[in-house]
Design a protein around this nucleic acid. Structure first.
Lengths: 176, 176
DNA sequence: TTGGTGCTTGCATAATCATTCACTTACCCG
DNA sequence: CGGGTAAGTGAATGATTATGCAAGCACCAA
């Protein structure tokens, strides 16, 4: 298996699909088909269906009862292989600090809920739960493990270098 | 608008739907229809479709390419009027206790997310955020209001009688 | 009571999405 | 070179989900 590089059309298409989903409110596969065509990419509904599956896209409901596509960030974590968690953490976690039983995880703007969702479903021992804002996650550690211990786990998962274990550098309001 | 109390069948059904979704891996609406029937609740696919919309359920993809339903903690309550909150709380909250800045809300199995979602979007003063498990919600109270004060508000909303404000009767692990 | 209003539901059907099958192409190995 | 294998795709079709419509019921007001 494995081609050379010619077959990049699929990847290009899927990348465009991802982009379209993220920016527009894509309501259906025919709709997405149109948008793709406007970008000079032609594909049938069948192909798009397969793309969406591979990308892990799902239809979510938005206000008004309509539903649009979104990239999952959610589904795969149901069975969250810790590999997935590690991948998400490595991708999006910028900083991990702790104070008392709380661990504060910083992410790029808007990404907090993605990481929090993965954490929530990871079944990580020592993690009671999370509250995610826009770019900040607050994790509640068990008393047994404590904030410091949990922070250590999280840093290990994300590959973040040890950073100021006890003294927060800056106050960030998590608008939940 | 506003019936007496006879028309509880819809709410019962939706509660069961929520529970089934949370526990089983519901793959389709006909599948859910069967599960409901096994619980003694009959409904057509059309009704179930509407229930799922109202509950904000979505189909997510799990490992293997299959997809199952899940409650969206995310879309529907976008507009959550406080009346809605009161209704949800009254329907599903079994117990409210507090300790320190935390309030623990117990619900029927599988229903925690629904309540937590409503709470998250309620803009309730004194409530910083929530972490929902299967049948348990942890609410973080502001320091100003405190766990006791928040618990009081929540009890009022849900109509639960005052219960052991400071001493948890039983340890319930919130499996998040 | 009587008529009006709004909510809920089932039926039938439309809309949407997933999958089977066949075909093409690229690549690998004798 | 063939032959074998696997990925990728479209057309057609099957499966699933959403919806228009009408009926039924509770409630309210006159």
């Amino acid at each position: 298996m494995g081609y050379g590089e010619v077959m990049s059309s699929k990847q290009q298409r899927q990348q465009m699909v991802t982009r379209l989903i993220a920016h527009d409110n894509v309501s259906s596969q025919p709709h997405l088909q149109e948008l793709l065509k406007a970008q000079g990419i032609e594909a049938t509904q069948a192909t798009i269906s397969r793309d969406l599956e591979e990308l892990g896209a799902v239809k979510i409901r938005i206000a008004g009862g309509d539903s649009i596509y979104a990239i999952a960030e959610y589904a795969p974590a149901r069975v969250a292989p810790s590999d997935q968690l590690r991948r998400v953490m490595a991708e999006w976690v910028a900083e991990v600090t702790s104070s008392g039983n709380l661990v504060v995880v910083r992410t790029p703007p808007g990404c907090a809920h993605v990481v929090a969702s993965a954490l929530d479903r990871s079944g990580l021992v020592g993690l009671l739960g999370t509250v995610a804002g826009d770019d900040t996650i607050m994790c509640v550690a068990t008393e047994e493990v404590g904030g410091t211990g949990l922070a250590e786990q999280l840093r290990s998962l994300s590959g973040v270098t040890d950073a100021t274990g006890g003294i927060p550098r800056k106050k960030g309001a998590a608008h939940v």
